[in-house]
Design a protein around this nucleic acid. Structure first.
Lengths: 156, 156
DNA sequence: ACGAAATGGTTTTAATCAAAACTATTTTAT
DNA sequence: ATAAAATAGTTTTGATTAAAACCATTTCGT
């Protein structure tokens, strides 16, 4: 890797690809009068009897501070409801309302179809290559982050 | 591709990888008391005599509505300045101030080093594979978007 | 048994995102 | 020459991002 080159182009492509894909996915979800994070919550809760807030945060990649607001707006739309957990006074269970479940069952298959069109000309191997390459980079980030934290501790 | 599977896992990995990488990059840029979009503007302007606002938007992937605010905050920090274009009354030229240029020259090489650590164990081929896979998906999105726009026109 | 530490979720904060509407200017069509 | 269309950048809007601080509750250590 030539350390004097400009910003690594492959990372620029990662950002472009991410933005491009999100824009494509949003163009479908906007028709449901939902945002991508809102729809992500719905499809994560869909097909379940409910889920703890913490688990929902883990599955959707929405940080907990942000998730409170996303869930509130879905409550306002009558699509999601909260219930206190019986086991842990701090905890809450989230689940789709009847309207939320109807929307999920009606729209999720077509959304899946919409997303899967992207791969209509891909072989299984090509999809696997992309996935593997992405996981590889995630791992590289984890390794570098771990090293950075150690560097900070040593500097104290 | 099994159309009844859950959200395509490879796309979930794209989102995770993007988020993970941005978080890693931000951890370095935050030390400069800048945000990633602000730093992106600085490194895009760095090494140039100035750039038109429109061009800056194209190179940084920040939409023009958002770019106004990002640039304003950099002006407030004394790192960027604007000048009216002599050729086009609508247009503006943006450039780094002396302080902005100093910051760029001081920090860009170390940021590049910080980012390039991610690839310290990659071969050229592995980097190329990732880049190619990402470009392939971008193209797939473009193709699907083009088809969607055509679908909308026909529906009118 | 009790205090300390950790955890689950909320609130606060500053910044960003992205699209639509707007204003001023330039370019295009007639 | 003039009106219509397009463009460059700003403003507005509602939502999200992400981190830090906070409060209430649970878990851990002594």
């Amino acid at each position: 890797m030539n350390t004097t080159s400009t910003f690594p182009t492959v990372l620029r492509e990662l950002l472009r690809t991410n933005q491009s894909f999100l824009s494509y996915a949003a163009s479908h979800v906007n028709k449901l009068d939902l945002t991508l994070p809102q729809f992500d919550v719905i499809i994560t809760l869909g097909g379940t009897a409910g889920m703890q807030y913490k688990k929902l945060g883990e599955k959707t990649l929405i940080t907990k501070g942000t998730l409170t607001g996303v869930v509130s707006r879905l409550e306002d739309k009558g699509l999601v409801e909260r219930a206190a957990s019986k086991k842990d006074g701090r905890s809450q269970i989230l689940r789709l309302t009847e309207a939320g479940n109807d929307l999920f069952e009606r729209t999720f298959p077509e959304h899946l179809e919409f997303i899967n069109r992207l791969f209509s000309n891909y072989s299984e191997e090509e999809i696997a290559t992309l996935g593997t390459a992405l996981l590889r980079l995630q791992k590289a980030v984890s390794v570098c982050r771990g090293n950075e934290i150690i560097d900070e501790v040593i500097d104290e």
